[in-house]
Simulated scan of single mutants.
Amino acid sequence: MKPVVVIFYLVILITQDAFPTKVDKTDVGYGKRANTYQFPYVASLQIMKKLLGATEYFHVCSGAIVSNSWVLTSASCHFLLRRDFRVAVGILSSRAVGTHGAQYRNVTRIVEHPFWIGGNGLTSFDVSLIKLGFPLIWTKSVKPVLLPDSKQQHFGTAVVVGWNSANLSNKNFLKYAVVEIIDSIECHYGIVHAVGLVSTPKLSNDMLCTKGNYDSTACIVDSGSPLIRHGVLVGIASWISDSCPRKKAPFVFIKVRSVLDWIMTELKTP
């Protein structure tokens, strides 16, 4: 019976590590560094730059692996207008080169949600799907995320994962933080208070807001960061305050449930 008990406890430890539910003050603010295999569905979208004659790739946005050929991210990533970028998966450092288990793919197609109107502010349906040039190979460090069903609820705590491309001191390592899902009224006033907008655009039904526990918003988020609840992808980061961490502005995500039909339709396209 002892081997069975050991395996049972190992399963519990792995599950708790992958989907943390206990909130600790070290989980917020700049987040905690992710462990190997903890978030195998997170992708780094990287732009190519030439420095001193050498070609390097730099992390710009995050995304979530939804199939072996598609990554879901935010449509408002500026770099999507350029062609010289790639998708990196199976990595813990966004600047890592030749990391064991890492996979890199070029992009053949970008499909923006048909209802997205563009822009950098609070815009509805701010999501896009990126078609990879070659299918991913499933490993311990590269796996698809679970998608929600049409009845997915949005309350309680969740986990946000990202590198925060705007924070040079933390951008190299994948981190996560436990955040609290809040209602649209609290979100609206939180944005006004933090950013100082006289008239904040109305939040639409496809949007979901979070704030950091202990009044400390997680500053690891970048555009396209996945929001996970009980192992299920519930949101994709869309609007992020430039003032983080000085002001505790909420983060706005697009509900994956709201765009699920569109995702499933696109995944079936060749």
Rank of each mutant, 00 (worst) to 15 (best):
S184W: 07
G212A: 05
H59Q: 15
V11L: 15
F8P: 00
H188M: 11
I12P: 07
V111T: 14
K247S: 12
T73N: 08
F125M: 11
A75R: 04
T139S: 15
Q16N: 12
A18Q: 15
L52G: 04
S76Y: 03
L147Q: 04
D222M: 04
W138F: 14
K175P: 01
G156A: 05
Y189E: 12
P135D: 10
R83H: 10
I130Y: 01
G53W: 04
A88W: 00
L203W: 02
I185D: 13
I12E: 08
L233R: 09
A18G: 07
L51T: 12
S258R: 10
A194W: 00
I12V: 15
I181Q: 10
F251T: 15
F125P: 03
F39I: 01
F58I: 10
Y9I: 14
K32W: 01
L10R: 07
L72T: 11
T139N: 02
V111D: 00
S258D: 13
A177M: 05
V111M: 09
K202W: 03
M207V: 09
I185E: 13
Y30F: 15
S44T: 01
P270Y: 06
I117H: 08
H230Q: 13
Y57S: 04
D242F: 11
Y104A: 00
M207I: 03
G162R: 05
S150H: 12
I228Q: 06
I7C: 09
T157D: 13
I7D: 12
K49Q: 15
D261L: 04
G29H: 07
T269F: 07
C244T: 03
N68C: 02
V28K: 00
G98V: 08
V221W: 01
S141R: 15
V159I: 14
S216E: 14
V178Q: 10
W239T: 15
K49F: 10
L132S: 07
K151Q: 13
T26W: 01
W262S: 02
V28D: 06
T108E: 12
G98I: 08
E56L: 14
S74R: 00
K140A: 14
F155M: 11
G156T: 05
P250G: 09
R95D: 15
G196M: 09
F251G: 09
E266Y: 02
N68M: 09
R33P: 03
L136P: 00
Q103N: 05
T26H: 07
I137G: 05
P250D: 08
P245L: 05
V232W: 04
Y37W: 12
S184R: 14
L136Y: 03
Y176E: 11
V107N: 04
F115L: 13
V111C: 01
D126I: 11
V23C: 06
H230S: 15
L52M: 13
R229F: 03
N106I: 06
F173L: 11
S44K: 04
G53P: 01
Q153H: 02
S184A: 13
S44R: 02
R257H: 02
V142F: 07
K2E: 14
A43V: 04
A158G: 14
L136Q: 07
V89E: 02
K268P: 01
V161T: 15
W70C: 03
V89C: 10
V6T: 10
S199H: 12
